[in-house]
Nucleic acid binder design. Structure first.
Length: 286
DNA sequence: ATTCAGTCCTGAAAGC
DNA sequence: TGCTTTCAGGACTGAA
């Protein structure tokens, strides 16, 4: 489940292996993987052919590669199971290969978008003067963006009538945080996922942001998180951070702070993992 | 305006 | 054994 650290690992791989190459041909093998490209797969392939691509950027879980001189960029989202692989031409096609990009050079490698569940995809979009693809203008800066505004984030939390985990997953407030790192950062902060944001104090917001940055930095340091081999980075290597998780996926296992068994609660069609002792539920709900 | 449930998808694992 | 059900969940859509 790629979140910010995993996407950043992919971005770095793309920067190393495909930046500044010229596209020879694009093959779209599944229409759903280009569904955000409204003109369709043929148009996507045609527009990229012969174009030189630039250095990849990232905001939250989105990454994009500018297409030189066109004012557009290839936007990528990995969804749940997407991978961007750089593979030798002769490497056999992956079972869930959705898009292939061949290059006009002698490196003998191609870029492949592989995605079992097809929640992710590639598309081409116009870019704003700052380079941001227009369709992700609503995505907030992520906590590693130098222009992320901690104070503005705090004030936004205070204004909302929602609970903290919903807010963390709201990509228009803060981007890059998904279910896993939300649970991890809340555990580190000893905050229950249903705590209302309206009552957050400035120190509490600051501590939470600090833990979000810490846990994501730790994941980045080991190359991302992997649970079931669905996530592989651009060089085909899995991350190992899952062994370091303190909350996510640890139902019934002892809290590493207080030994209380962790709990799992169904939450918004997914799960929340927490320590019932360290992370006390707010007094009343609704 | 804001919040929130429903929807998409595949395959592993659990249930019967 | 083999079929059916459940679960994983990011982000968009449209309803309340």
């Amino acid at each position: 489940m790629p979140e910010l650290p995993e996407v950043e690992v992919v971005r770095r791989g793309l920067e190393r292996w495909v930046a500044h190459r010229t596209v020879a041909e694009v093959e779209v093998l599944h229409p759903r993987s280009v569904r955000r490209h409204l003109a369709g797969g043929d148009d996507f392939a045609h527009r990229l052919k012969g174009q030189r691509i630039g250095t990849p950027s990232r905001r939250g879980k989105y990454l994009w590669i500018p297409v030189d001189t066109t004012g557009t960029a290839i936007l990528a989202h990995l969804g749940m199971s997407g991978q961007l692989l750089v593979q030798p031409h002769q490497s056999p096609d992956e079972k869930h290969l959705r898009i292939r990009v061949r290059f006009d050079d002698a490196l003998a490698t191609e870029l492949r978008f592989v995605d079992q569940r097809t929640f992710g995809g590639l598309s081409l979009h116009e870019t704003a003067p700052d380079g941001l693809p227009d369709v992700i203008a609503h995505i907030a800066r992520d906590p590693f963006d130098p222009l992320f505004d901690d104070e503005a984030f705090h004030q936004a939390l205070r204004r909302k009538r929602t609970t903290i985990k919903r807010a963390l997953l709201d990509q228009s407030l803060i981007s890059g945080v998904g279910n896993i790192y939300a649970d991890e950062a809340l555990w580190r902060s000893r905050i229950h996922y249903e705590r209302p944001t309206a009552g957050f104090t400035r120190p509490r917001t600051a501590e939470l942001l600090g833990h979000i940055r810490d846990v994501m930095n730790a994941a980045l340091a080991v190359g991302g998180t992997s649970f079931d081999s669905l996530y592989v980075n651009v060089n085909g290597e899995s991350g190992y951070f899952d062994r370091s998780l303190d909350a996510y996926g640890r139902e019934g296992e002892p809290c590493r702070r207080c030994t209380t068994p962790l709990r799992r609660r169904p939450w918004m069609n997914r799960s929340s993992y927490f320590c019932p002792s360290c992370q006390r539920a707010p007094r009343v709900s609704s």
